[in-house]
């Protein structure tokens, strides 16, 4: 096996399959997705592949997207709710290059939305699939580090540990101190990690019109929530689940009841709050809405941007 004589100059991107993964890998992932849909909230082990981006940077979501995407799909990728964060840009470019698909920043135009840490504010529809990048899929992992133990807990539906943890929070802090990756129970059976989205987004998972798929590449797990499925955030009668509320609307578009990013303006304590969902904010501004910061300058929002990359 004298590799030094092997010709490697011909190895270029052209030799990769559509959407990078080989067909056998896609089949394996597709089988796992179907099982995940059939058993909502259950983490299906799958033989995750090494991807050309680092573990922890969306390899699970990328593998799920690569397994479901077709030539006619329109892909949107967000990170922290934004289309223009560097890792979202990088993953979008990866699919534009390896699958030649149309990409978009406009939520309603997308057929597949891959996300890290947010669910878009615009309600999703039946024709869309939401793919989450998941770092640690096991909701019990920080209570019990051993896979052999947590697997048993799920098998026996033994979730007492999770309730104890949440209750200890209340005893110590007066609050459930979990603000993101807030555990949910799916269809009354499996306790599931919603990925590190702020708990603000948890209610959007409940009876969603859209199929939600979750991929954890490093931890080799895929799970799913079918549409119209019960997704209930864990809580207590005397401490019901509640989402974050912001005191002020978005400074750019004036939106209320949305998740906001805090932006530090100076070193004198100046702060402003703007939509985390960049497309939502831009389209509201394009529609003439404006927040306190923009004053009387409506229509500053950039047009949503749908394009096909040159192959």
């Amino acid at each position: 096996m004298n590799a030094l004589t092997q010709d490697t100059s011909s190895q270029n991107l052209a030799s990769y399959n559509f959407a990078y993964l080989d067909e056998q890998t896609k089949r394996m992932i597709r089988r796992a997705i179907l099982k995940g849909i059939a058993i909502p909230g259950y983490q299906v082990p799958f033989a995750s592949r090494e991807m050309p981006m680092p573990y922890g940077w969306g390899t699970g979501g990328v593998q799920v997207t690569a397994a479901i995407i077709g030539r006619d799909d329109v892909l949107k990728v967000i990170d922290q709710g934004a289309d223009d964060t560097t890792n979202a840009v990088s993953i979008r470019a990866f699919f534009a290059k390896t699958a030649g698909v149309v990409t978009t920043t406009a939520t309603p135009d997308a057929t597949i939305i891959q996300t890290r840490h947010r669910i878009p504010e615009t309600p999703l529809t039946e024709g869309q699939v939401l793919v989450y990048q998941v770092p640690i899929p096991e909701p019990l992992r920080f209570l019990e580090p051993r896979e052999t133990e947590t697997r048993k807990m799920h098998a026996l539906e033994e979730y007492g540990l999770m309730h104890v943890k949440l209750y200890e929070d209340i005893a110590r802090n007066g609050h459930i101190a979990t603000t993101y990756a807030y555990p949910v129970k799916v269809e009354g059976r499996y306790v599931m990690d919603p990925s590190p989205t702020p708990k603000f987004d948890n209610p959007k998972m409940h009876r969603s019109e859209t199929l939600q798929l979750f991929g954890a590449g490093r931890e080799k797990r895929i799970y799913a929530i079918p549409p119209h499925t019960e997704v209930v955030s864990l809580d207590f009668e005397d401490h019901p689940f509640e989402i974050q509320h912001f005191d002020q609307p978005c400074a750019m578009c004036g939106a209320e009841q949305v998740y906001l990013d805090e932006v530090v303006l100076d070193d004198k304590g100046g702060r402003m709050f703007v939509c985390s969902d960049t497309h939502y904010c831009e389209s509201r501004r394009a529609d003439g809405h404006c927040g306190a910061l923009l004053g009387d300058e409506p229509g500053l929002g950039a047009e949503a941007n749908t394009r096909k990359e040159a192959m």
């Binding site: 896609k26 059939a38 199929l211 799913a224 079918p226």
Partner: peptide
């Protein structure tokens, strides 16, 4: 067309399973 056909068939099945 193994790549295109299997993807189209899978998406139909995935939608059927999800709904």
């Amino acid at each position: 067309d193994p790549v295109g056909s299997s993807q189209a068939v899978f998406r139909a099945l995935m939608d059927a399973m999800a709904r």
